[in-house]
Nucleic acid binder design. Structure first.
Lengths: 126, 126
DNA sequence: CCGGATCCTCTGCGATACTG
DNA sequence: CAGTATCGCAGAGGATCCGG
């Protein structure tokens, strides 16, 4: 994102002003794809960059790198780089902090699935 | 938002394609201020437009109307309009569907508060 | 295979002004 | 008071190229 809300919360925290719980919380989630990334890492464990990219076929290379970098800065994901003979392989996994978000992420998606299911049922009457 | 993700999910659903649980779920939350609005409506009950606006002092009039309209379209909030002698008063409250999100919203914020608290502690060592 | 830098396009969103 | 319409710009984000 390089989102304004994100920067706003980070500045306050940098100044030891912790009176921004809502802004802060949102800044953890609000990035494009972040929740989906958390979800996949939570359920698949460690993944390479290219694996994540394959799962998010709408996300551009740039966006993905950006989001993952932010999440690493926020200590939600771990980034481990390995150099192979020809190139490099980068592995991402959840930190403990990232893991602690998984229940919430799961709740969000199961809420969504339920809601979609009820929409689907009521659409039978069209 | 008039967000692309939101439109994407809505189009699929309009075409009776329900294979977009993640996109759909995110499109419910991802608007600017939506989570905070949910939070306040969940904890304060029915509120007038101007009351909500006072709580979100960073949100412009335009954005608030827009977000509230989207949430009403998504059936997360109820909109009740009353005409007073001089002008009009608009009351917003959560629908049952909106209510069903409150536990998740609460979890999000309490997660954020915990996380902030631990950041605060570790900053004592600077 | 991955990430960063540059360029260029498109859009989110604020400001303003107008309706009821 | 609440919502809509128009305009304008900063910034998000895609495409592409390069460097490791």
């Amino acid at each position: 994102m390089t989102d304004t809300a994100r920067e706003y919360a980070q500045e306050k925290i940098a100044k030891k002003d912790f009176s921004c719980a809502k802004e802060y919380t949102l800044s953890m989630f609000s990035g494009k794809y972040k929740i989906v990334i958390l979800y996949h890492l939570g359920h698949n464990g460690t993944m390479r960059f290219s694996q994540i990219q394959r799962l998010l076929d709408h996300a551009s290379h740039k966006m993905l790198t950006q989001q993952l970098k932010e999440m690493a800065d926020d200590n939600l994901v771990d980034r481990r780089e390995e150099t192979i003979n020809n190139g490099k392989a980068v592995y991402y996994s959840l930190t403990d902090t990232g893991e602690s978000l998984i229940p919430i992420v799961d709740d969000m998606f199961s809420w969504g699935k339920n809601r979609l299911a009820s929409l689907e049922v009521s659409s039978d009457f069209n």
